[in-house]
Amino acid sequence: MREVFSLRNGHAGRSIFRICNVFFMFLLLVLMLVPLAKVISDSFDRSTIYGLNFWPKNPSIEAYKSIFTNPNLRQPLLVSIVTTVCGTALGLTMATLGAYVLRQKKLVGRGFFAKFIFVTMVFNGGLVPTFLVLKGLHMTNTLWAVLLPPSVNVFNMILMRSFFEQIPESLFESAEIDGATPPQVFWSIVLPLSTAALASIGLFFAVEYWNEFFRYVMYISKTDYYNFQIKLRDLILSEQNINDPAIIGFANMVKNAGVVVAMLPFFVIYPFAQRYFIAGVTMGSVKE
């Protein structure tokens, strides 16, 4: 095991390094936090022009109240949550299935499949053809248009595969000897050993679905199905929002609060996901 901080035993060099490291981390945190702190502080601040302060000058929680009580904003929040949860589940299913099959080195056609899927990362059909396909499937103006297409993500699938490749071959061999079918191996060996991978790639998917914006704009016209990001952009950029009571008089405050709300779910989810990262530390180093 690595030893803890100590000035004895000629560890001075290491100690200096650690102190520098802590200092560096501290600087990094300040750099990261200043803009965030400003947003959070301003989201509670009624003032119209903000200054150098990191504490609200005219404290008020009106902005949050209006976000959570206003159906204009509540409905999009709901859409965001639903699509993120379903999308992540769907995305993980696709990524794990794909990665599991692609990791079978002896499978006939594996190389072809890998290339077949990889091509889609660089080439895409563009807006109009994609729109026409979705329209043909009667998916425009439904949430399917934002849920299904991004669920196969080459990047995530390749990463997942590289995680799976770290699972020792012997485990598979012994399972095969026991007569387990591929789905059984997938379910009872691969998945349980991949919590860290599932957590990190699941988070990748969650972020993608949560921040999805372009697909809503292009494939959906019904404002009922718009998510929080669209509403947020509308809040920030819109030219015609004067009739929106959430805005008048304290526009900046609501914008800032919107930003905070948009990050909130990850404040909540992240500590859990992070637990899995740490729990999964052992994953990569399963001893053979």
Partner: peptide
Amino acid sequence: LNHPVHNEYYNKVNLAFSTGD
């Protein structure tokens, strides 16, 4: 009604005409 968000209006009109809707 087809009532897109204001900023996207003409993008949607173009798309509507291009896709026969």
